[in-house]
């Protein structure tokens, strides 16, 4: 499934690198710990997190993740979106908490 289909199906608000929505999604990983994501996420995963810190872009980019979904409608700083644009990393925002968006995505990708 393409990231675009996921974003549409789950009404995600795309905040950076819209061109990246053509990427294929291989699954998802939910975590707020950068070391955990570095160790355990897989290439092409969607990363669901509450973290909005600048380092999320570097981690997602190093691991070749498809995109980042920020939960609970958290604001993402311009600086982070700018970095995401440079690193070609789609950042999307949902109002839903992690449990619920993970649940819906799991159903969608199943």
């Amino acid at each position: 499934m393409k990231l675009l289909d996921v974003a549409n199906a789950l009404s995600l608000e795309v905040k950076s690198f819209k061109d990246g929505l053509q990427k294929d999604v291989t699954g998802a990983y939910v975590s707020d710990l950068l070391s955990d994501v570095m160790a355990n996420s897989k290439q092409g995963n969607i990363w669901i997190t509450l973290q909005t810190h600048l380092n999320i872009v570097a981690v997602a980019s190093m691991k070749g993740l498809a995109g980042i979904v920020i939960v609970n409608g958290r604001q993402v700083q311009e600086e982070v979106l700018k970095r995401a644009e440079e690193e070609k990393m789609p950042i999307m925002v949902t109002q839903m908490p992690a449990f619920e968006i993970a649940g819906k995505l799991y159903r969608l990708l199943a």
């Binding site: 699954g27 998802a28 990983y29 939910v30 975590s31 355990n40 669901i48 609970n72 409608g73 109002q95 839903m96 908490p97 992690a98 449990f99 619920e100 993970a102 649940g103 819906k104 995505l105 799991y106 159903r107 199943a110």
Partner: peptide, 19 residues
């Protein structure tokens, strides 16, 4: 993992904490 655990419980009907 947290993704699979959330996915399975949500599918089984457990709701998320209210936002």
């Amino acid at each position: 993992c947290m993704y699979t655990a959330s996915g399975r419980l949500f599918r089984a009907g457990l709701p998320g904490c209210s936002h």
